[in-house]
Simulated assay, not measured.
Amino acid sequence: MNTSYAIGLDIGGTHITAAVINKTDMKVLDFSVCKESFDSNLPADQVMNIWKKVICTAIENSKIKNITGIAVCMPGPFDYKNGICWIKDQSKYEHFYGLNIRELLLETLGFSTDFPVLFENDAVCFGKGEVFKQQKNLSKKVMAVTLGTGLGACFIDKGVSISSGDSVPVDGEIYNLPYQDGMAEDYISVRGLLSHYKSLSGTVLNNGLELYNLAKSGDQSAIKVFGKMGEDLAAVVIPWIKNFKADHIIIGGKIANASDLFLSSFNKTIQESSLKIEVSISNDNEIAALLGAVSFLCD
């Protein structure tokens, strides 16, 4: 059997990770992985040049010549079929609204206009990748949640992503579910954490890492903020765990790295609702997302 390779891209509000993936074995070529943090609110041409540098480095490191496609996991709102970005007023990709990212990507890389490029929701990619990583999940109903600059989710039934029907929210999304005085993402995201910390302490922080370091150093307001986020996350997902009849919930995203600060309050709220569900934290969000993205090229 001829081995086939594709580029997997995990693109978030503050980072891009690229790797070359063996589609035949669904394995990431470890030495090809290249990542970079950046400001997604830079002008579009500057962002595209950052992406180009990371992608080209991954290809160069892989020593693979016959790349057969690009699979991109991208946060929404996004027209995944046509590759058009509809992100607006989310403190990320301010200059990308309405742009055709497929065309921009191919033009920037100098690839032909018919080169296969597939886009999928970042949370869906993460969820599918986790299923590939843990084969036992192929027989289960899994809800996957990503916590970062936004709040992502996906629902997977025996390896198949479910985004319609009565058992899941509209489009399988939870970020825009009504919650307290706004929507879920207003509370369960980096900006939600920073906003809550400001309301408690009066201090404006620049990013989630500053908040995490404060919590780890014993700052009680920072500790309280993470604990409350755990409760909020549980409150948002409980109705959909019940509706979907999920066996397993997997939490990923940048904020998942701070699980020691919110997982106990999350689990406590889950237990108080009398739900019995396996809860786990992903130990490599990016690899899962890359595998999940490329899996759609194989479907």
Rank of each mutant, 00 (worst) to 15 (best):
M1H: 08
M1G: 13
N2F: 10
G13M: 03
G13A: 11
K23M: 15
K23W: 01
M26Y: 04
S32P: 07
E36H: 14
D39H: 12
N41D: 01
A44S: 13
V47Y: 09
N49I: 04
W51D: 06
K53M: 06
V54D: 10
I59Y: 03
N61Y: 12
K63V: 05
I64C: 10
I64V: 14
I67H: 08
I70R: 06
V72H: 11
F78G: 08
F78H: 11
D79G: 05
Y80V: 00
C85A: 15
D89T: 05
I101T: 09
R102S: 09
E103S: 11
T108E: 13
S112M: 07
V117I: 08
L118A: 10
F119W: 07
E120N: 06
N121D: 01
V124E: 04
F126V: 05
F126T: 00
F126W: 03
K128L: 15
K128Y: 07
F132W: 05
F132D: 03
L138Q: 08
L138C: 03
L138H: 12
S139P: 02
A144D: 01
V145C: 14
G148V: 11
T149D: 07
G150Q: 02
L151E: 02
L151P: 01
A153Y: 09
K158I: 00
D166F: 09
D171A: 12
D171S: 12
E173Y: 07
I174W: 12
Y175I: 06
N176M: 10
Y179T: 03
S195P: 04
S195F: 03
K198T: 10
K198N: 13
Y212D: 09
Q220R: 12
V225R: 04
M229Y: 00
G230K: 03
G230C: 11
D232M: 10
L233C: 08
V237I: 10
A246F: 00
H248Q: 06
I249F: 08
K254P: 04
K254I: 07
I255H: 01
D260T: 10
L261S: 05
S265A: 02
F266N: 00
I270P: 09
Q271A: 15
S273F: 06
L275I: 08
K276S: 15
S280A: 15
D284A: 10
E286W: 04
I287P: 00
I287W: 00
L290H: 07
G292H: 03
A293L: 10
A293R: 04
